[in-house]
Design a protein around this nucleic acid. Structure first.
Lengths: 332, 332
DNA sequence: AACGACGCATCAGGCATCCTTATACAAAAG
DNA sequence: CTTTTGTATAAGGATGCCTGATGCGTCGTT
């Protein structure tokens, strides 16, 4: 019996979905379906009731789930301990990130990391800030990457980078001819921005308030991409991280302006649950982010490990990085 | 990760032997060796110190053992529960038996059982009577088959069969011409028999004592085969179960005599630990013994199960029964 | 009601995995 | 020094698992 099969089963029960469990375990839905079937055949009893409203465990399935959950948990802990000893960087790590960072800041770090540690699978989930804190505390993810990290007793926060907040306006806006603006010039502009409970929105509002601007929002979204689209079609101006609009300013679909009153930084941080011991893979991931992309040595170069990797050059190489990076969107 | 691999590892640590762990798990020593190696490679650390005096776990190996033991135990319990639900008779059962019964009484029941339940692996170990009780209580075996079952609070005993105790003498003995003897005729005969702490020896001595015979033992052994060889070369006479000497009496290498004073039965029993819940396979095994050989239906014939078995007629059919019956001798 | 979207089941084919057999090798025993 | 016992290694083959394609219900839409 594969312990992985038990984990798949647990994931099915917890998520209520075969397909989701499949993606969580880096296999196809077909494989998951077959695993469940073979379990059911092996013990000659139905384990999961497949109904219209998702899936529910049968009595037997519930027993299997209860025990498996325990077994899987113990096994994962065991693996962490052993990897610790052997300094083996492998396994899965689950990272939750807000859209803007995940799309515009992480990619170079990520591909670098995946190249250096081919035995690590990275789950990248796009989540809203508050959900990241929640999931961290519930143990659903190992790491979070957020802006304006909140200080909480259960959360440890490690500084990552600082973005600069800039103003974007549609090319047809009066301000588009300038390269820098005074806050006073923003008076009367209609704003587009994040929803009120999102940290970057709060930061933007604070900056505006401190400079005497009372913004009028016409639209609020929960992710940066939609905000940019809204500005492009002249629904308003917005304050966003500089890195997130590089594409659009280069293409000319958006005009970016700095503030004459100074630069405003948006601190990003890696966060994790306090007290939770981090697996070698997670620690290496944090290192990779804090050290910056391209700073990693090509190989861990610790004797044995190199040999082992070289022993199987013909291995089914999962060609692209993307194959090992599961990107699951949770917000609509 | 196969849970079976973890079990193999535990068995290695507990027994201090690769080969023994191999036989316990119905695989070759080679497979065991490879499994350990792949574990060591996977976590890039030595797990077992191979020294002259057996094998010892390293620090990492100890960690692996501790967790694995737990995982394996939970998994086996889980499997029992599920098999219970699906009425699936499969898995391994460990049976400890004394030589005489294992060699002369069990075989027909065994081959019958194995034919009816091809998914069950039977570990048959030849043990001395007291070791069987010990191992039962320690949970090292599931069932025991013994003669003259001792009444103990921790042990449940189920009657199995009754052998008849008879006298065997070498063909050149004066008694060999008779077919029945009076106990009085045994006076002056030298005896060969079991060691003093073995139940059948105690029973024989009691019978002799009750009929006024004070036996003089010249040799004592812990198993029936050696006793027979000793009698064959005229080292003395012996009181043994009738079934165990069928071969020799047929060949004429031994002469068997009944007692004129009556027949003396040697009760056999299946024993197991009180309170321990028995797996379906163990229960079926008990049923098979108590019902007698040849009484089983050809198939459980419970719908689905038949189908499932028929689905794979081309399966690597482990031809002979012997392949699935591990006979490990513990006494020399 | 027809249609597409979604999610699970099934099938066939390829390939990695793991096991067995055979053999090497080391240490201990006779 | 040979034999025995126990583990490691090599080669080959069977098993099993996964993927990709496809089928088939159910649900929500227009």
């Amino acid at each position: 019996m594969h312990i992985e099969t038990l984990k798949v089963f647990c994931d099915i029960i917890e998520s209520g979905s075969f397909s989701y469990a499949a993606s969580q375990n880096f296999v196809t839905q077909s494989a998951v379906s077959q695993q469940v079937r073979s379990l059911e055949e092996k013990y000659d009893c139905r384990l999961i009731e497949r109904g219209r409203a998702g899936v529910k465990p049968t009595a037997a399935g519930q027993i299997l789930y209860n025990s498996s959950k325990d077994i899987v948990r113990r096994f994962l802990e065991l693996e962490n301990k052993l990897r610790e000893i052997g300094s083996v960087v492998a396994g899965s790590i689950r990272v939750g990130t807000v859209y803007s960072v995940g799309l515009h800041e992480l990619p170079p770090y990520l591909s670098d990391f995946l190249r250096r540690f081919p035995d690590v699978n990275v789950h990248l989930e796009y989540l809203r800030s508050n959900k990241i804190y929640e999931d961290l505390i519930e143990g659903k993810i190992d790491l979070g990457v957020v802006a304006y990290p909140a200080k909480r007793s259960q959360i440890v926060s490690i500084p990552f980078r600082n973005d600069e907040l800039v103003l974007i306006v549609p090319p047809d806006n009066a301000l588009a001819k300038l390269s820098k603006v005074h806050f006073s010039q923003l008076e009367g502009q209609r704003f587009v921005g994040y929803e009120r409970d999102i940290p970057t929105r709060k930061a933007a509002d604070r900056i505006l308030r401190e400079h005497g601007v009372k913004p009028v929002y016409t639209m609020e979204f929960d992710n940066i991409e939609t905000i940019k689209r809204a500005v492009e079609i002249s629904l308003g101006v917005a304050i966003v991280p500089r890195l997130t609009v590089e594409h659009e300013t280069a293409r000319g679909s958006l005009k970016m302006l700095e503030f004459l009153e100074g630069t405003f930084l948006r601190p990003l941080a890696i966060i994790h649950k306090r007290g939770r011991e981090l697996s070698p893979a997670v620690r290496k991931f944090i290192e990779a982010l804090t050290a910056g992309p391209g700073t990693g040595v090509p190989r861990p170069a610790k004797g044995e490990r190199v040999e082992r990797n070289n022993d199987r050059p013909e291995r089914n190489d999962r060609s692209a990085d993307a194959d090992r990076t599961e990107k699951a969107e949770k917000t609509a």
